[in-house]
Simulated scan of single mutants.
Amino acid sequence: MAEDLTWVAPEGSWASSAARRRNMQAIRSRDTKPEKLVRRLVHAKGLRYRVAARPVPDLRRTADLVFRPTKVAVFIDGCYWHGCPEHYVPPRTNSGYWSEKVLRNVERDRDTDQRLTEAGWLVLRFWEHEPSDTCAEKIVDTVISRRLHTTNG
């Protein structure tokens, strides 16, 4: 006898359907194409960094690139998940839930920026749609500048 393998969302589940659940599980939280391209460009300029690391160990937030000696944390934010003012489009299904989710992400981003700044870190944030070479150049210039600043004074 064949078992019924129909997926049913548990009460209060974030996934409104089996298809939505599969879609959400396939979304990467790290190693996205924009991240990988920026990392490759920064690495080619001779800089080394940590990937998907916590800048501050007791803060449960990870940056996409972390330059510990110079205290620079880099985030490459996805337009949808972080509410890009140019590209964010509210979803048509379950819009209340997803809009609240994005709003919480934006609030957490601001909280992360504040906490890292208070801990002496410089936070660089880029949107996934920004040109990778422009992002990489800004990162390299910032890290080198902070290296020179810390060694000279």
Rank of each mutant, 00 (worst) to 15 (best):
K71R: 15
W98M: 00
P69D: 03
R110Y: 08
R60S: 15
R115M: 07
G120M: 06
V72M: 05
Y49H: 08
G78D: 12
V140Y: 01
K45G: 09
V66C: 07
K138R: 06
R28V: 10
D64W: 07
H129V: 10
L47V: 02
V106E: 12
E35K: 09
D133L: 03
R54T: 01
Q114K: 14
D113Y: 05
T117R: 10
P34T: 04
L37H: 09
S29Q: 08
L59I: 13
W127V: 00
R110H: 09
Y80K: 15
R30N: 13
D113V: 03
R54D: 02
T32W: 02
W121P: 12
V140H: 01
H129E: 05
E137L: 09
Q114G: 00
K71C: 14
C84L: 08
V72H: 05
I144E: 14
F126Y: 12
V66L: 08
A44L: 12
V89S: 11
D77P: 09
R20H: 10
V102H: 11
E86N: 14
N23Q: 14
E86D: 15
M24G: 06
V74C: 01
K45A: 15
V140E: 01
R48M: 00
C84V: 09
L59P: 10
Y80M: 09
H129L: 05
W121M: 03
D113N: 07
R125D: 03
L122A: 13
V123Y: 03
G83A: 10
A63H: 10
R108H: 05
G96S: 08
H87N: 07
V143G: 01
I76S: 04
V38D: 05
T62K: 12
R68M: 02
A44P: 14
F67Y: 02
T70H: 07
I144W: 14
V51Y: 02
D141M: 12
R60W: 12
I27L: 09
R60G: 13
V42W: 03
R48N: 00
P69Y: 00
Y97I: 06
V42F: 00
A26E: 06
